[in-house]
């Protein structure tokens, strides 16, 4: 009997944790998008006010943060200063494929980020500023979607995990 109870508790807590994990992953996406926005705003300042060349600008903003998003910027900066690519777009795309795919970001988020690589560095300051503004708007959509998803699904995942655990226990007990 004791064995049964211990086993049951284990099953319930395991599936409950699984549910927590899923819901956590959802809010992770939102946090990463938020971090991306913060770093992009720093990059905008470097570009439009400082007119700092990209390799130096990317390197300096990535130092102000850590984690995957920051690694993404470091990697681009490295690719550019080592001349592994001849255009920002290529370095940006390569970095997105290599690093952002490991993050909790969704495919649509990564596509949005990738498209910004086409523009970065390719025009004058005024034009770059406009593109940054546009990027923030688009990023807002993704952030809103992420929040919506958290609201909708996080609770569900959490309770679903526990319920599933209980269901399994009831069926096999």
């Amino acid at each position: 009997m004791t064995l049964k109870i211990i086993g049951g508790l284990l099953v319930i807590s395991a599936s409950g944790l699984l549910g927590l994990l899923f819901s956590n992953r959802l809010s992770l996406r939102y946090r990463e998008l938020e971090k991306l926005r913060r770093l992009m705003q720093m990059l905008e300042t470097e570009v439009t006010y400082g007119a700092t060349p990209l390799p130096a600008a990317l390197c300096s903003i990535s130092k102000k943060s850590e984690g995957l998003i920051s690694n993404f910027f470091i990697n681009i900066s490295k690719c550019l200063s080592e001349r592994s690519f001849y255009t920002v777009r290529e370095a940006w795309n390569e970095s997105s494929e290599l690093i952002l795919t490991q993050s909790s970001l969704k495919k649509a988020d990564i596509e949005l980020i990738k498209s910004f690589g086409n523009i970065l560095g390719s025009s004058d300051r005024e034009d770059q500023k406009k593109h940054f503004q546009l990027f923030y708007l688009q990023l807002k959509h993704q952030e809103d979607a992420a929040i919506e998803e958290i609201k909708r699904s996080a609770k569900m995942y959490r309770s679903l995990g526990f319920l599933l655990g209980i269901a399994v226990f009831v069926v096999f007990a």
Partner: peptide, 17 residues
């Protein structure tokens, strides 16, 4: 020419306006 231009301006056209 495009490639040389990228290298000359350090991938940042805005810095050489």
């Amino acid at each position: 020419l495009k490639c040389a231009l990228q290298l000359i301006c350090n991938y940042s056209m805005y810095s050489v306006e």
